[in-house]
Design a binder for these strands. Structure first.
Lengths: 211, 211
DNA sequence: CCGCTCAAGTGATTCCCGTTTAGTGTTCAG
DNA sequence: CTGAACACTAAACGGGAATCACTTGAGCGG
């Protein structure tokens, strides 16, 4: 009872978050660091320090580092899927829906650059293919919503070039190209975001879809 | 002094490549590994082993690992610059030149996926901005050749949407998007390469350029 | 031939990373 | 009271990049 000053057996073992509380705490801390410093910057030790816990403790709740970051990315992709689901059923012209979906996609990427990169850029080298399967699947479901709308356009005979498949893939990848380069080359002398996005969508839709 | 048991003077110290011979040897070995296994796979130790030399020896010739990989990438980008230079002055229609340049760009990316990724995808996290300046500069010179040709189109009043700058950036980034995703997501069910590239170029050029 | 410099190379070491192992204290059902 | 389950820990391991102090040998003036 006398000297409580010492850090006896490492004093605080932080017994706070019992059970499943801790898992959320870790995810939150990891997200903060991951969003701020990317995949390389979000180390196990940094995350553990942020939570106030030993690095080993993270392995109580997650299989490995990638599982943590993928769960964060899953959250992000789920938000994108929700947006896409909402847009895909709006009672408006299919071409307008395609445009809205692509624009929302680009906005999403620019607002969640690290999660976006983890899912759509890294993939090779950073993480094994199997691990990302679940997340990839979410991405595929997003893309499927998009294909469906492009299919509507094709069904009305307005697709000028290519099959539904290739047209959808080209529309998607060109949007990916714009946002991924804006993200990875922030020092490049880009034209204004809005102008780029509009030029891209105007060009692609005018080029692929006849009115 | 009796016990000669020690591994004496490590016998072979590989005195072979004196002077600047060794530098090329390292680059060659690094290129083989880098092309086969990417940035993460090309470790200092693996490269040194391949050359038959200690890992420390690499620092005789290069400041650090990134300098090695960037020099390899420089070589690749230089080949791209040559192609672009040759195409940009061909005595043919500007739109056709743009198409040829973009198609060559995509072919190049698919043939040099690791160098391409290092320069156009990674950038964030993997390497500090300053280090890649020289290589970025090469890329910028490639892009400038491209802008010039787009400028020709604009000068003839055939640019339908956006400024020269944004049109050039959109054309470039959309091609980047297609090839970068083909590279990083090899398991995705892509439409045939040729069809995708054609759909993209047909769509973009039809959308952005009036005849 | 001696002794010198100097470039090229080395093993050991440092630091950080993800991950594993063995163990500690607390809680709580039987 | 016992012992299993739990949440957690320190220490260590192997592998990365990079640095250090040292050795080796070639070239060369005297």
């Amino acid at each position: 009872m006398t000297t409580v000053l010492k850090k006896p057996p490492r004093s605080a073992r932080k017994p706070k978050g019992d059970g499943h509380m801790r898992r959320g705490e870790i995810l939150e801390a990891a997200q903060r660091i991951f969003v701020a410093e990317g995949y390389q910057g979000a180390t196990i030790r940094k995350i553990a320090d942020e939570v106030g816990v030993s690095s080993t403790a993270l392995y109580m709740h997650f299989k490995d580092k990638d599982e943590i970051l993928l769960e964060i990315s899953d959250g992000a992709i789920n938000r994108l899927l929700e947006i896409n689901s909402e847009l895909s059923v709006r009672p408006i012209d299919a071409v307008t829906r395609v445009r809205l979906m692509l624009d929302a996609y680009m906005a999403f990427a620019l607002e969640n650059p690290n999660a976006y990169q983890l899912v759509f850029c890294a993939h090779t080298g950073l993480m094994s293919v199997e691990k990302t399967e679940a997340t990839q699947d979410l991405g595929d479901r997003c893309f499927q919503k998009f294909i469906d709308v492009v299919g509507e356009i094709a069904a009305s005979g307005r697709l000028r070039t290519g099959s539904v498949e290739s047209a959808a893939q080209v529309l998607w990848t060109s949007c990916h190209g714009l946002v991924s380069l804006i993200i990875t080359k922030p020092t490049f002398k880009w034209a204004p975001d809005a102008e780029l996005r509009q030029t891209l969508l105007d060009g692609m839709l005018h080029g692929l879809v006849s009115d």
